[in-house]
Simulated assay, not measured.
Amino acid sequence: MSLGDCVNNFIYLTGSEDYALNLAKLCERFVLKEKRVFLITSRQREMAKRFALNSQSCSKYLAILQVLDVESTPNRMLELQDNAESLRSPDLIVFDLQSLVLEALLRPVMQQCSTSQMVRHIAKCSASFVNYREILASSELQKAAKPIDTIVVMSQEPYPMSPAQFKLLIGLYFHGNECHTNFAQLSSRILVSHGFD
């Protein structure tokens, strides 16, 4: 079995900030089926409010890593690589890159940040996530060849990147990832791959 058979990588391009509810519903379906979810987001409080799950299920099957800002995220991802065992082999990993970009654009100190600096931060976050994902997938392959699905949430609008930079970012770090703009289609694709009825 190859790495490609065990990892399904998706990009969800969102046109609004309302994607969090759909994301929470997908995570909830996984948790109710006792499948493990690892969510990396800067919106932990907002996401936690949307879960109508009992706390025992949440703590056992749902891990939310709140990343505070786009600058420190690559270091947090490095820490995860050293502590992958603590994630209890997730079935679904969601990297909410969009929440990090929005958080950075709204922060006064980051509004003074140059566009090229911001693009570098986004690229570093993308690279660190891809590196983490590959390390985790390799370790899972060695264990039980269990499938892992990953979703990277990004905006349909490339800003603060230019369209060319956005295309380059996807080409460099997410080449071959299945790209979706309809969350219902993406969700059903993932649920089918995990045997949901």
Rank of each mutant, 00 (worst) to 15 (best):
S139C: 12
S89M: 08
L53H: 02
Q111L: 09
R107C: 07
Q117N: 05
E140R: 15
Q56W: 04
F174H: 10
A164L: 15
S99H: 11
S42F: 05
Y173L: 10
A20I: 09
A145I: 14
A123P: 00
D149P: 01
L169R: 07
M47I: 12
N8P: 00
H180A: 04
A63S: 12
F166D: 12
D96A: 10
A123Q: 03
S162N: 03
F10C: 10
L106G: 09
D69I: 02
Q98P: 00
V7R: 11
G15D: 01
D96R: 05
A24E: 01
F51C: 04
Y19Q: 04
K167V: 06
Y19R: 00
I64G: 02
D91A: 11
L169H: 12
M118C: 13
L32Y: 06
V152K: 04
Q44G: 04
L68D: 08
Q66W: 09
T14G: 02
L78Y: 15
F183S: 05
V152A: 14
S42P: 00
S59K: 12
M1K: 12
E140V: 13
Q185S: 04
F166S: 05
S187P: 01
K124R: 13
L21C: 04
N9W: 06
Q156T: 07
K60C: 07
Q111V: 08
Y61P: 02
A52C: 01
L78R: 13
E140G: 07
D197V: 05
T115G: 07
K33S: 10
L80D: 03
R189A: 09
L102C: 10
L169G: 03
I151H: 08
T181S: 03
H175Y: 09
A63E: 07
E79L: 15
L97C: 03
R120D: 12
P108N: 04
S139F: 09
L191K: 14
A123D: 14
Q142D: 15
G176W: 05
A123T: 09
L106W: 01
S155V: 02
F166M: 07
D149Q: 08
A164M: 14
I135Q: 09
N75R: 11
Y132I: 06
Q142W: 13
L21T: 04
P74R: 05
Q156P: 00
N8F: 12
P147Q: 14
L186K: 03
L100F: 03
E178T: 07
D96I: 02
L97Y: 09
L23Y: 00
R120F: 08
I40E: 08
L62V: 03
L68V: 07
A104I: 04
A104T: 01
S193C: 08
L168N: 10
S187T: 02
C27T: 12
L100A: 06
A20L: 09
V152T: 15
R133M: 13
L39M: 08
P90Q: 02
P74A: 11
S126C: 14
R29Q: 10
I170A: 05
N22H: 03
E46Y: 06
K143L: 15
L105G: 01
S99G: 02
K143Y: 13
D5C: 10
D91I: 07
A84F: 11
D69G: 11
A104P: 03
E46P: 00
S139E: 12
E140S: 14
F183T: 01
M118P: 00
